[in-house]
Each structure stands twice: as C-alpha cells, then as structure tokens.
Write a protein that binds this DNA or RNA. Structure first.
Length: 887
RNA sequence: GCGACCGUAGCUCAGAGGGAGAGCACUACCUUGACACGGUAGGGGUCAUAGGUUCGAUUCCUAUCGGUCGCACCA
C-alpha cells in the first residue's frame, strides 16, 4: 500500500497529528505511576501552578523539561512518578477574586468570610480545569490519579501537623515586630515578598528646635509623614558636632512632643547631617534603636495606609497625601528649609505593587536559625542537594546563611487558617491539631480562633512529601521519596527550593530531592521579560495552535542552556515545525516503499548490509550514546541538536537518498535489508526523540511495521548504546565517498554545470586500498554525480583540459569540454595551494616548536602529524597539477 | 557595598586548552517520484579590550569597558 493510498498527507499537519492523542494515552493509563518490586524509582513533583489564571510560556518550558525527563526514564523501564498538583496561592488568588467582586461593587467584607471563601473555591475549580486543559495541550505525562491541591484535606493536615510540631518545639512564635505591610492587600508580607525598586525621591531637611530655645538640630528624612510618630532624634556617640546635645530635649515641630536626642552607634556620621529622627513604629532600624533606648512606639497609620488618631489633624489622610500636606505646612512654618533630589530604593509588594509600609504589628514567625543550620550542614556534607548548574548552590547558601525569621501570618481569608486559639477568659494561647472546645488552662469555653492564615509558601514548603501522604507513612513515600529532581526557574530558589529543603530535613530527615535543575526564564523577542503590564506575553496555546505542541516543545528544549534565559522567537518555532515536517516526509517515504509483502524482521532482516546501511546503523548508535549522555546531565539543547542533525543531515540527506538505489533495484534481498534498516533506524530515532516531541513520534510510530499492535511509544524501550553497531570502516568509507560527492557537486556548482548534464569523471585513488573503497562505492557516486563515464583507478590518464579537485586519498578530474579556461583553472588551484600552504605552515611551526613536542600529549602530536601529512599530500597533488597545466 | 551571569557570523544563541558552530537571514542554482515547512553549493566572525598563566588561549586567571540579574544598605 502506498502513502497516497494510506492517505498520508504531503505536509505535516500538527492539528491532525495532535488531536485526541492525549486522551488515547490517558485511556491506556500510560502515565500512571508504576510501583514494581525491585525496580529503580524516578520521581518528580510538579511545581504547582497558582490557580490564578492561565499557564504562560515559563510553565511551558518548565513542563517540557520535566516531561522530557520523565518520559525517557519511563521508557527506560524505571518506576516513574510525575505527580501533578496546584497551589492555592493565597494573596494572588484572593486579590484576583476580590478584583472580580469589586466589578460588581462587592467587597469581601460584604460577603463575610464563609461566603467569600465559597466564591474563591468556585474560582479555583474553574481555573484548575483551565490548567488541566493546558497540561493536556502540552502533552505532559503526569499521573492524574495522584493530583494534589495545597488545600486538600491531606495537605491541610500536613500543614497543621508541621505548625503544631514547630510551635511545640519553640520554632514558631508570635510577636510584635516591624513587618512589611501591604496597605493595598492589608496584610503582612515576608521579606522576600518585597520587591525593591530604585525611585527618584526627595530628601527633606528640617530643623527640630531645642526646648530650651538654644537653637535647633537639623534632621533629614525621605518620609516626612512618619515624623508624627517620632519619639527621639539620634546622633552617633562619637560625633564631635553633637557632643553637647546628647540627652537634651527637642520640641517636636508638629506634635509638640518633647523628644530626646539620643546617641546610637547605628547612626552614620557621614550621611546627611549625621542626625536621624527615630520613628520606632514605622522603621525596622528605628524599632531596634527604640528597643535599645526604651522609646515609645507610636503607630500613626492604620492598616490601609491612612493616618490614624495619633496623627492629629492629619487623621484620615492617605499617607502620601499626608506627606504633601506636612511638607507644605512645615515649609510655611519655616521648619523645612531644604528639599533635595534623592535616589533610593523603595519596597513594593510583590503581588499588589503597593509601596510597602514598615508597620508594627503582632504576627506569627518561624524561628529560622536552627532550621537553616541543618540545611547548611547538609549542603556542606557529602550528601548535599545537587544544584544544576552548580553556581546556584552559592546563591542558595548565601541566602540561607543570612536568613532572618520568617513572618508566616497573613491577614487574608484564603489559605490555611492558623491553628491557634485564644482564651478570652485567661488569655491562654492554644495551638493544637484538633479544634479545641475549651481552654486547656482554665477550662473556659470562651475561645477565639486566630483570624489569620498562613503564608502560601508554608504549605508549598511541604509539597514533595505532603503530596505523597505525609504525615501518614505511605507506600508512595516508600517508593518515590525523596524525589529525583526538582525542576524550577531561578526566581523561586528562596521562596520555594530553600524552604522545601529545610522543611524536608526537619520532618522527614531526608533531603526532598537529589537534584535541583534550575532553568532560565523565557523572555520576549526583544529580551524583556514577558509580562502582563507590558502586554508582550505570548500565549503557549496560540503557538500550539499554529505550529503544534511538538514544535513549541522542541524549540523550548533546544534553546535551553542550563540556567540561562532564552528569548522566544517565532523563527525558532518555525524551524522546529519544519523539523517535524521533515520527519513526517521521511516517514512518508519509508511507508511508500514498504509494499504489501514486506514483513519487518528488525536486525534479523539485515541480510545484505551495504556500506550505507552499516554507516547509518553506526551513526544511529553513536547518536544514541551522545543523546543519552547529554540527557543524564540535563543538556537538552545538546541532545535535541544531536537528534536533529542525525535525522536531517544523515538519515534524510544521505541514507534515504542512497536507499533509493536498492529500493528501485532488482536485488530482492538488498531491497528487503534496506527496508528493514530504514524502518529500524526510523523506529529508534522516533523513540530517541519521543521525550521532546511526543505527538508526532507516537503518530508515526503507530504506523510503522515494527510496532506491535496495541503498543505505545510511551512505554517502548528507550534506545541504548550497543557496541555491536560500531563500525569504523563504514565510517571511513562513507566519509571518503561523501567527500568526493561533495567535491564534485561543488565543482559543478562553480562551473555552472547543472546536475542534469552528464559529465565524464576520473578519480585517481592514492592507493589500492582507497581504490577498492571507491570501487565498492561506485554506485553511490553515480547516484549523486550523474557521470556519463566514470573511471576509478590508481593510475588514470589525465586529459589536459580538466578541472581537478583533491580530497583526502584521491584526486578528481572533470574534463568539462568547452568550459575549461586553463588560466582560470591555474588561478583556482593557486588559491587552493595558498590555503594549503597556510595549513601546512601552521602545523609545521607547531611541530618545530621544541616546547610543543616536549610537553604536548603524544596523541595530540600524532593527530597534528597526521594532519600535516594529509595537507602536505594534498598540496603536493595541487602543485603537480599546476605544473602539468603550465606544461 | 557583596555576589552571580553575559559580551562569539547581520539577528538569536550553542561551544570548547590544540584545525571557529547551529537556527534564521543573505547569494547562486535546482519545480529531481518523501519533503519548496524542500534540495545543492556558497558568502560572512582578528570569539569586547589589555595584561598574565601555558609549548599552545577565543576557551583558564587578573584588570578594564559595556550589559543583565540577585542580595544588602538607603535618615
């Protein structure tokens, strides 16, 4: 049956190839984890996407990498698990739902906690569906039977267990601290949720008068509105300028409060006037100084960033409005005498973008030092987590070595509610697994649960083991934990990777993963980040619709250099799509030639292997070795290129062309061998490529005569290197023949002799060995070069008028009647000679260098000598040809 | 201030202590019975700059210039 009869379209159509295939895989249960006794395990937990919206190009890259890894290991026969799931993403999701409600003029307070949470769950279900839809489009082979959500019952239990254990151990505490406050979301943030941006601000210089009328002291501030909470002014204890003033009282210019001048080492004498106003409730450094000097903490704002009752006449104003007003008032009073431009960085909320306010409030914290110490010990020991690329280990260590306590309470509703209750009767705090009904201390039932929820990352930190059933001791934990590798972008090393490591050490006594593979981000074509605000994001689904999932995946994986960013370019997707088309057509060629009576026998059918067959099998084997080696070290770009080059430049460009001879010839055995080789190599190549391009490889594989009925490439064995296919002789012979063929094509092109015009071709072999190779390959030369007469010999009668070319081992002559200009030919050969002169000279210089001969490794010297002999040989041939022509 | 990364063909990027590579773009020819999403042949780079290590550096080290990012500070 021919390809036309089978209706194989001439062009690859990704839509047709990819339709329904994913569902078919799922029906066959091919992605379900296997847990067979005695088999090695390989597991990955997905970095759970937020249920806030659609997956972006970064997800597509992240998932393509993981899928390539897990598909290969699955094909290699390991027990594999790729566990999918999603993250509730506290602040992000709540913000999205609140924004949605706001369009209807509803606030979360209008609904109340319970009703509001119902809305969020609805939202979550909707987006979870969208995400699953996108996963299926990307073709990722996750085990849906194990899908988890961070707020599942099981995972919630894990969270509560961890909270209670850490609390009981004294590693979780509640305290009144300066934290990063997001006035837009009205919640506390952890340090890493604050993004610092450089802002051109202003530095305001003011005079605070001494109460005794003895002049004034000059202070500078960037945030004049906080002066309402000033409770001191500080100078450096050794600053001569202010020695007499320490301890004196000042009249605060606005509040009239009497505030002291204090001395503290923290103050930088060089900055500004060397005097700082101290606002303990609104600045972390001032807070610490305030504690050292027992200063009063006056909070002057409310949770929304508006001035509160401590702000006198400014009460009710927004903080920035207040700044303007205070500046105006102070200028009028003559207190503010100078405004300078001042560049400084200002913290913004990662989620809402609001300017973060350092804010004094009562929050829950994780005491980090003991947890960090364990993580550091692990990394300094023999069983460290393997970061790929390893430079990220330094990034990680630097952070964990300088870690500060982690603020984990959030004033939100969407999330894991903190399992703490307060007794209104005796004031006791109760932290427990089960909801208490009465106070453990006084027995009273006037219990009030803490309103706050936990930082999203608190639950994410448990992901590798909570998803497998922890704190229960499950079979999944036995088989698949610790996981093999965690794949993520570098932007969440601190948020997530670090926290998983110390959590896992604390609660499972094991590191959560052997390797951490850190990849870059996918940037827009111009190198900028893809972002919603810039509107330069590219939706993976749009790309898939036009070019197919396989093209997108291959482009993303092939562009991956470990840890480096890549730019998204449509030309690169197009190139990947063209590759898919090339494979499609090569396969189509194979199908078209199979014929009704052909029975695939695999290697048993290799009865009459020619040089080309031996060569392609050798090259396939070398490619398999290369690809496997590269995949083991996460070199997806290298592995992808190796397959690309093999399939396109060797299988298609050379082997298929050469195969046409036996396929169209009379030798039934040669024809059958060729078909077996064509199918075998294609089959193996498809398996090799399957982790990169799952759809097209399955589609073609299903049509191959080598495929057993009902089998899927998903669980076919992955190709492995086998020394029996190594064939140096075939490599050498094909190398020589390819050199000659290319050389002739080159001459034809340069002399404008079209391929359709037959030529006379004389090949002078260097020795009888080479002559034998060329004679064996005569049909190959005929196939590509269209000679009307072909002479191969160690001794050919060279016509006077002929273009000559020299390759390693042979000299070629093309007597092209009417086209040869002797002078031009001499000039061309002179140019060739000059090139060879350069090569010879370079290597001679090297070999004449005593230092080189004495110190370079023997094999390097040998290859240099061989190169020299080859170049010198070629040069001698060219010279003698020039002399012949000159007569 | 500390740290990391990058600077290679017109563009986007691989690479490696011993003859500079890919994709796209470009030039010429080819509508050849798998494929024009194709074929064949070609042009194009003192591998940012200056030192150093080495028999040998585009690759390793140092400095400089240019770019990106993270952390800390920021009255």
């Amino acid at each position: 049956m021919t390809a036309e009869e089978k209706n194989i379209p001439k062009s690859y159509d990704p839509q047709a190839v990819e339709a329904n295939r994913y569902e078919w895989w799922l029906e066959q249960n091919l992605f379900k984890a296997t847990e067979e006794e005695g088999k090695e395990s390989y597991s990955i937990v997905i970095p759970p996407p937020n249920v806030t919206g659609n997956l972006h190009m970064g997800h597509a890259l992240n998932l393509s990498i993981q899928d390539a890894l897990i598909r290969r290991k699955r094909m290699q026969g390991l027990n594999t698990l790729w566990l999918p799931g999603m993250d509730h993403a506290g602040i992000a999701t709540q913000a999205r739902v609140e924004a949605m409600l706001r369009q209807d003029g509803i606030s979360r307070y209008d609904l109340g906690r319970e009703k509001f949470l119902e809305k969020v769950w609805e939202w979550k279900e909707k987006y979870a569906d969208t995400i699953r839809q996108q996963w299926s489009k990307l073709g990722i082979s996750v085990d849906y039977s194990r899908e988890r959500f961070t707020m599942d019952e099981g995972l919630s239990k894990a969270v509560r267990t961890v909270f209670v254990k850490l609390y009981d151990k004294g590693l979780i505490y509640r305290g009144k601290r300066i934290i990063n406050w997001d006035p837009a979301q009205r919640t506390a943030l952890s340090d890493i949720e604050v993004i610092y941006k450089d802002i051109q601000g202003k530095l305001y210089h003011m005079r605070y008068p001494f109460e005794d009328g003895s002049g004034a002291i000059e202070v500078a501030t960037t945030r004049p509105e906080t002066m309402l909470g000033d409770t001191a002014v500080a100078v450096h204890p050794e600053d001569e300028r202010y020695q007499g003033m320490i301890g004196k009282l000042l009249d605060h210019p606005i509040t009239g409060r009497k505030i002291p001048v204090i001395a503290d080492e923290y103050v930088d004498k060089e900055f500004g006037t060397g005097v700082v106003k101290i606002t303990p409730a609104h600045d972390p450094n001032d807070f610490e100084m305030g504690q050292r000097h027992n200063l009063e903490q006056i909070v002057v704002m409310n949770e929304a960033g508006q001035m509160n009752e401590n702000a006198d006449k400014y009460q009710g104003m927004d903080r920035f409005e207040c700044r303007k007003q205070i500046v105006a008032d102070l200028q009028e009073m003559g207190v503010l005498f100078k405004i300078e431009e001042h560049a400084h960085s200002v913290g913004h909320s990662e989620r809402s973008g609001a300017v973060v306010e350092p804010f004094l409030s009562t929050q829950w914290f994780v005491k980090m030092q003991p947890l960090a110490d364990a993580a550091i010990d692990l990394q300094k020991g023999d069983d460290a987590v393997n970061f790929v690329p390893d430079r990220f280990e330094r990034t990680y260590l630097q952070w964990i070595e300088n870690i500060r306590d982690w603020c984990i309470s959030r004033q939100l509703w969407w999330g894991h509610r903190i399992p703490a209750w307060y007794c209104d009767h005796c004031g006791e705090t109760i932290v427990t697994m089960d909801d208490p009904t009465s106070c453990t201390k006084c027995g009273h039932d006037a219990l009030r649960r803490d309103e706050d929820v936990l930082d999203t990352w608190f639950s994410s930190a448990l992901w590798p083991f909570s998803t497998m059933g922890w704190p229960e001791q499950t079979k999944d934990l036995d088989t698949f934990y610790p996981t093999s590798v965690l794949v993520t972008a570098y932007d969440i090393i601190f948020f997530w990777v670090a926290r998983m490591i110390f959590s896992a050490l604390e609660f499972t006594d094991k590191k959560p993963f052997e390797d951490v593979l850190i990849h870059g981000i996918v940037r827009a074509e111009d190198g900028r980040k893809m972002s919603k605000s810039l509107g330069n994001g590219i939706d993976p689904l749009d790309v898939i619709e036009k070019y197919g999932t396989d093209a997108l995946r291959f482009m993303l994986l092939n562009g991956t250099a470990p840890g480096n960013d890549q730019r998204f370019q449509f030309e690169r997707v197009e190139s990947a799509r063209n590759f898919a088309n090339k494979i499609w057509n090569a396969s189509r060629f194979v199908m078209m030639n199979l014929g009704e009576d052909f029975t695939y026998q695999g290697a048993n059918g290799f009865a009459k292997l020619g040089t080309a067959e031996k060569w392609i099998l050798h090259r396939l084997n070398a490619t398999i070795q290369d690809v496997n080696a590269r995949m083991e070290v996460y070199d997806f770009g290298g592995a992808g290129s190796a397959i690309y080059e093999f399939l396109w430049n060797e299988y298609c460009d050379w082997y298929i062309e050469l195969a046409k001879m036996p396929l169209n010839g009379d030798d039934a055995q040669a024809k059958s061998t060729t078909l077996n080789v064509l199918v075998y190599v294609l089959d193996q190549s498809l398996r090799l490529l399957h982790p990169f391009m799952p759809f097209i490889t399955e589609e073609i594989w299903q049509a191959l005569p080598s495929t057993a009925a009902g089998a899927s490439i998903v669980t076919a064995s992955y190709p492995a290197f086998d020394a029996k296919w190594e064939d140096a002789q075939a490599e050498k012979e094909m190398g020589l023949l390819m050199d000659i063929i290319r050389s002739i094509r080159n001459t034809r092109a340069e002399m404008n002799v079209p391929p359709s015009r037959p030529i006379t071709l004389l090949i002078k072999a260097k020795d009888s060995d080479t002559e034998a190779i060329l004679t064996r390959g005569e049909s190959y030369i005929r196939r590509f070069c269209n000679p009307e007469a072909l002479t191969i010999s160690t001794d050919v009668a060279v016509p006077e008028k002929a273009v000559s070319n020299v390759v390693t081992g042979a000299e070629l002559f093309l007597p092209l009647a009417g086209l040869i200009d002797i002078d031009a030919e001499i000039a061309r050969l002179e140019k060739e000679k000059k090139k060879l002169d350069g090569e010879v000279e370079r290597i001679e210089k090297k070999l004449n260098n005593q230092g080189f001969v004495a110190k370079a490794p023997a094999e390097v010297i040998e290859t240099e000598k061989a190169k020299l002999a080859d170049y010198a040989d070629k040069r001698a041939t060219v010279i003698s040809r020039i002399e012949e022509l000159r007569g």
